[in-house]
């Protein structure tokens, strides 16, 4: 049911991969995001931006997937940042202290310029 409105889009910009997530990331949909992140990292993306501008809900499952990808980028000398501006999404990052872990940007342009 949740998957009907869920979509993970990929955009490549040289060695930068932008993964945009539309819809709700929960226990049902998080595996799709994990699959895409694994694939782009396997393909050699040097820099990764996860754009949550179109994301309407995240829970601990979503955070687990993002943390997994972030750990991999750190271990392999790559970079990863997250774009989020919805207060509901930002609040989950703040509650869990992840605002200190991920570079968080308010817009995709800001993330790409950093």
């Amino acid at each position: 049911m949740a998957e009907q409105d869920f979509e993970v889009r990929e955009h490549s910009h040289a060695e930068l991969e932008v993964i945009s997530v539309v819809g709700e990331i929960d226990l049902a949909t998080a595996p799709q995001l994990r699959t895409v992140l694994d694939r782009v990292l396997d393909a050699g993306a040097v820099s990764l931006i996860v754009d949550l501008s179109g994301t309407t809900f995240i829970d601990s499952t979503a955070l687990g997937v993002l943390i997994g990808a972030w750990k991999r980028t750190q271990n392999e000398g790559r970079s990863m940042s997250v774009v989020a501006s919805d207060p509901r999404i930002l609040r989950v990052f703040e509650i869990t202290g992840l605002t200190d872990l991920f570079p968080l940007h308010g817009t995709l342009d800001e993330a790409m310029a950093s």
């Binding site: 955070l63 687990g64 509650i95």
Partner: peptide, 11 residues
Amino acid sequence: DELSLSLSLQI
């Protein structure tokens, strides 16, 4: 998954 469980508890 201890990490996810810990995150759930925090939230």
